[in-house]
C-alpha cells in the first residue's frame, strides 16, 4: 500500500530525513510518533508532494507506483489526503464551493462524471449528518474565523467527502482541548474502513487513546528508530523521547 524505502529528504540544503523506511498495509492505521524536529511534518509534506522538499535518495511507493515527481493535485487524485496541522484560510470562498471544486477535480482526473449541484448538496448532507457537523460550517469561508477545533473537524469533513485511500493526519491533535479531540477522533473512527490506510503523525500519546493504531513507529533523527504495537506509545508517554536523544535534538 505505502512503501517508503531509504528516504532522504533535504530542505534548503539541510538533510531532515536520513534513510527512512516505512511499510503500511491496506486498511491499517499506523502512528508515527517523535520529538519536535524529528522530521514528522517533513514526512507528511513529502508524501503529499509539497514544493521545497528535495528527495536526495530513496523512494515513496504508493499502490505500487513511485510518487516522486508527481504534482500534489495528481497525488490527491490518486487518493492521498493530508489533514493539515494548520489548516489554511481561503477568504471569500465558501466551504461547499471549495469542496465541490476539489471533488470534481479529482473525479475529472479519474474519468468520472462530475457531480452537479443537486447531487453534491445531497452528498454533503449525508456526510455532515454522519459526522455530526452543522451545515453552517459549509456556508462559511474555508477556515476563516474557525476555532481550532472547527478547523480540525473541517479537515475530517473534507476527508469524508474526498474519501482517500491514504489519509495522513499531521498532528491532528495539536491545539485541541480534550472535548474537541474526542469529536475529531470519533470522526476518524467513523471513517475507518478496510479500504483506507491511515498514517497518524503525533507528538503525544493521548490521540492514540481514542484512535487505536495497529502499529506505532518512533521517528527521531530522520529515521524510524523503533516499531511496535500500541503499547509502545504508552511506554513513550511514560519515559518520553529521552532514549532517542530528544534532549540533544
Amino acid at each position: 500500500m505505502l512503501e517508503i524505502k531509504n528516504l532522504h529528504v533535504s530542505v534548503e540544503g539541510k538533510e531532515i530525513l536520513k534513510g527512512l523506511d516505512l511499510s503500511v498495509g491496506p486498511g491499517e492505521i499506523h502512528a508515527i510518533m517523535g520529538p519536535n524536529g524529528s522530521g514528522k511534518s517533513t514526512l507528511s509534506h513529502v508524501i503529499a508532494g509539497r514544493d521545497g522538499y528535495e528527495i536526495t535518495g530513496g523512494r515513496i511507493i504508493f499502490q505500487g507506483e513511485d510518487l516522486t515527481g508527481l504534482e500534489p493535485e495528481i497525488r490527491a487524485a490518486k487518493g492521498i489526503f493530508l489533514a493539515f496541522q494548520y489548516p489554511v484560510e481561503i477568504p471569500g470562498v465558501p466551504n461547499t464551493t471549495f469542496l465541490k471544486e476539489a471533488l470534481n477535480a479529482i473525479r475529472r482526473y479519474r474519468g468520472e462524471d462530475e457531480l452537479d449541484a443537486m447531487q453534491f448538496v445531497k452528498m454533503m448532507r449525508e456526510k455532515t449528518k454522519e459526522l455530526g457537523i452543522s451545515d453552517d460550517m459549509l456556508k462559511r469561508a474555508v477556515n476563516v474565523g474557525f476555532s481550532g477545533g472547527e478547523k480540525k473537524r473541517n479537515e475530517i469533513l473534507q476527508m469524508a467527502v474526498l474519501n482517500p485511500v491514504l489519509a495522513v493526519l499531521d498532528e491532528t491533535d495539536s491545539g485541541l482541548d480534550i472535548d474537541a479531540l474526542k469529536v475529531v477522533a470519533e470522526g476518524v473512527n467513523k471513517l475507518r474502513s478496510p479500504d483506507r490506510t491511515t498514517l497518524m503523525i503525533t507528538h503525544y500519546q493521548r490521540l492514540l487513546d481514542y484512535i487505536v493504531p495497529d502499529k506505532v513507529h518512533v521517528l527521531a533523527h530522520g529515521k524510524i528508530q523503533r516499531t511496535g504495537g500500541k503499547e509502545l506509545a504508552l511506554e513513550l508517554e511514560e519515559k518520553g523521547y529521552a532514549e532517542f536523544g530528544e534532549a540533544a535534538a
Binding site: 503529499a48 508532494g49 509539497r50 514544493d51 504534482e71 500534489p72 493535485e73 497525488r75 490527491a76 487524485a77 489526503f81 493530508l82 493539515f84 489548516p87 489554511v88 481561503i90 477568504p91 471569500g92 470562498v93 464551493t97 471549495f98 469542496l99 471544486e101 476539489a102 471533488l103 477535480a105 479529482i106 482526473y109 469561508a141 473534507q158 474526498l162
Partner: peptide, 20 residues
C-alpha cells in the same frame, strides 16, 4: 499547497482564491 493537496490544479486554485 492546501488547494492543490485537495486535488485542485494550480490555475483553478488561483481562480478560486481570486474569486474569493
Amino acid at each position: 499547497f492546501y488547494l492543490r493537496q485537495r486535488g485542485i490544479p494550480p490555475e483553478d486554485a488561483i481562480a478560486l482564491v481570486v474569486n474569493g
